[in-house]
């Protein structure tokens, strides 16, 4: 019997939104799925060798639990984004949640295929040398070629 398939479109490049594609992709691969993730727009940030710029912002993010109530006027101060990112990473580590780098490596080890959207790579003038080597490049039609035959297809 052929393996089940899952396709994910990853469009977000913040720390919180980086987790779902990598968690679902690594888990599906462990369950025996063939998995492809198509990274487009801000999702391209997740393919960079250096993920230290993947951050979380408390600003315009009212659902983010904060240790103390924080007015928007405070959230917009310089350095707040770095601080929130640092706190979030500490929290993730404390709870035994894998880092993005680790999850991404687990995906690659499990043969999850990463496809970067060529159009948005050009649009944002990304240098391909900034991306990890395992990335393939393609467009919407490339994605459909795989997605049209999947059991699970998600947009993140």
């Amino acid at each position: 019997m052929a393996n089940k398939k899952m396709a994910i479109i990853a469009t977000k490049g913040t720390l919180d939104m980086a987790y779902p594609p990598f968690i679902l992709a690594s888990t599906a691969a462990a369950l025996g799925y063939d998995v492809q993730v198509f990274f487009t727009f801000y999702g391209l940030q997740l393919l960079r060798k250096d993920l230290s710029n993947v951050m979380i912002s408390p600003l315009a993010n009212p659902a983010m639990p904060m240790p103390i109530p924080m007015p928007v006027m405070v959230q917009m101060l310089p350095g707040m984004e770095s601080m929130a990112t640092m706190m979030m990473k500490q929290k993730l580590k404390k709870h035994g949640v894998a880092s993005l780098e680790e999850l991404r490596d687990l995906c690659l080890e499990a043969d999850v295929k990463f496809v970067a959207c060529q159009m948005t790579v050009d649009l944002f003038e990304f240098d391909k040398s900034e991306f990890i080597d395992q990335v393939e490049y393609g467009g919407a039609a490339t994605f459909m070629g795989f997605a049209g035959d999947t059991d699970i297809c998600l947009f993140v």
């Binding site: 968690i23 690594s26 888990t27 691969a29 462990a30 369950l31 709870h95 035994g96 949640v97 894998a98 999850l103 687990l106 080890e109 499990a110």
Partner: peptide
């Protein structure tokens, strides 16, 4: 021990 989702599953598969 100490690992959160999805690591126990992914590491089980690897083992």
């Amino acid at each position: 021990r100490g690992l959160s989702c999805p690591l126990p599953i992914v590491k089980t598969k690897k083992s």
